[in-house]
């Protein structure tokens, strides 16, 4: 426990340093944050336009889909904000910057994450929150404490899962200098996919986003429980409540793989 506290404290310091660095270019920061917000806002306008034309999607109304959208985007924005360092990791390995992190007596994953905390993602976070709140007020949902808690858990689990994907992508930089765009596809494609109910997709897709990269467990299933919808795919309420945990599990697995990568780096250098 003391170790976790220690780690969180250091991470908080990293955040502070990033804030102060990025505030050196305040105008640019404000612009970028706004741009991020508007850009992700446009995505939602597209969703709105489709609901405006077709009325509903697989039995889901716009506010219901908006709730899903808000969950996914908040989770993704959090992950993008705090795990941006992993996104740039290939560059770090190439330039030898990773050696420096190995020369410090702290966990490498923590240092990579702290290396670049991207604040402008607040733009997407805010946009996701606005959509979520709009949806929450439109829906006839009794906001009981378990439901609120489930939403928070889903966001945290989702953030963990997306972070895991970024960690996994970064890990491959230990083996290959080619950037693996495939991961971006899974990550960004995953955001796009899980904004809509899982029933929309074919079996293969559903299985992929449930069992391989369990994105549906941090978005679709918790959303079902919050909305009180029955699942055409037949999941139970208890599974829906427990499902965000898979996000954390996924991150833990990815960090294990990361450690394998670090071990590989130890034996090969760059």
């Amino acid at each position: 426990m003391a170790k976790l506290q220690d780690t969180l404290l250091l991470y908080a310091r990293y955040v502070g340093v990033s804030v102060r660095s990025q505030m050196q270019y305040r105008a640019s920061f404000v612009m970028l944050t706004f741009a991020t917000m508007l850009i992700s806002g446009l995505e939602f306008v597209a969703t709105w336009a489709l609901f405006d034309r077709f009325g509903s999607l697989a039995g889901w109304t716009l506010p219901e889909a908006a709730l899903l959208y808000g969950l996914v985007n908040m989770a993704f924005a959090l992950a993008e904000g705090w795990a941006r360092g992993f996104d740039e990791f290939g560059q770090m390995v190439k330039s030898g910057g990773f050696d420096r992190l190995l020369l410090r007596p702290r966990s490498t994953a923590l240092q990579v994450a702290g290396h670049h905390v991207q604040l402008m993602r607040i733009g997407r976070l805010a946009q996701g929150a606005v959509v979520f709140i709009w949806a929450a007020t439109r829906l006839q949902v009794a906001w009981s404490p378990p439901r609120v808690l489930l939403c928070l858990l889903a966001i945290a689990g989702g953030a963990a899962l997306f972070s895991g994907l970024m960690v996994l992508q970064a890990t491959f930089a230990f083996w290959s200098t080619e950037s693996l765009e495939v991961f971006n596809t899974v990550t960004y494609g995953g955001v796009e996919t899980t904004q809509y109910p899982l029933t929309v997709y074919r079996d293969g897709f559903r299985r992929f986003f449930t069992y391989v990269v369990p994105l549906a467990t941090v978005t679709y299933y918790p959303a079902l429980a919050v909305l009180g919808r029955s699942d055409p795919l037949g999941s139970s309420l208890s599974f829906q409540y427990a499902s965000p945990l898979f996000g954390f599990l996924f991150l833990i697995v990815c960090l294990r793989v990361w450690n394998l990568g670090v071990r590989h780096y130890h034996s090969t250098g760059s």
């Binding site: 220690d6 990293y14 102060r20 660095s21 330039s95 030898g96």
Partner: peptide
């Protein structure tokens, strides 16, 4: 060839952060 200090920050902030990192 490479600094370990944080590029955009005053030197003392890097030092303070290193204090934290090295406990």
């Amino acid at each position: 060839q490479r600094t370990q200090l944080w590029w955009d920050l005053p030197v003392i902030e890097s030092f303070d952060l290193l204090r934290e990192i090295y406990r």
